[in-house]
Amino acid sequence: MPLAPAITDLDQLKERPALARLLAWNPDAVEAAKLDRDELTIVVKRPAIREACAILRDDGKLQFNFLCDITCVDWYPNEPRFEVVYHLLSVPRQQRLRLKVRLAGDDPSLESITSVWPSANFFEREIYDLFGVRFSGHPNLRRIMMPEDWEGHPLRKDYPVEGYR
């Protein structure tokens, strides 16, 4: 089963319902899109993430009502350094969607989506703890895995695997 090449052209993908809905709402909010290995990824601009999530959740046809996961990828030393990755699931339609927000290394912060899905609480705390990405509007943004006086953010690529000695 050879891999099909990824489609990254917005024009080819704009028929996809989730992308079409976001483009209809605000074409400037969508930075890029990609269809790779049957998974659709939409890169959303940083200020739009909370509203984009709310729209995808509340849309009567899309019904992405479940937040599976939030995580982060560190592309150090490349810029934009961080990618915050959201995995959404539509329970009635059994469809998945991936949203991404790219963040610069010198200002890793974005809006929390805990007001859209309360389940984002722990996931965002974990990203704050392990990557040092700040979420504004989070009710309790504290370390969750590491001790509170820990220095550094272990999952960053410039943090050595053995820790600092």
């Binding site: 790779d36 290995r37 998974e39 990824t41 599976c68 996961d69 990755v85 995995h87 991936r98």
Partner: peptide, 19 residues
């Protein structure tokens, strides 16, 4: 090959996903 995958399975406790 470069790329990304989110694979979810039904574990005894719920949706287990590997990204």
């Amino acid at each position: 090959p470069a790329g990304e995958v989110y694979q979810a399975v039904e574990s005894p406790r719920g949706e287990m996903g590997y990204y």
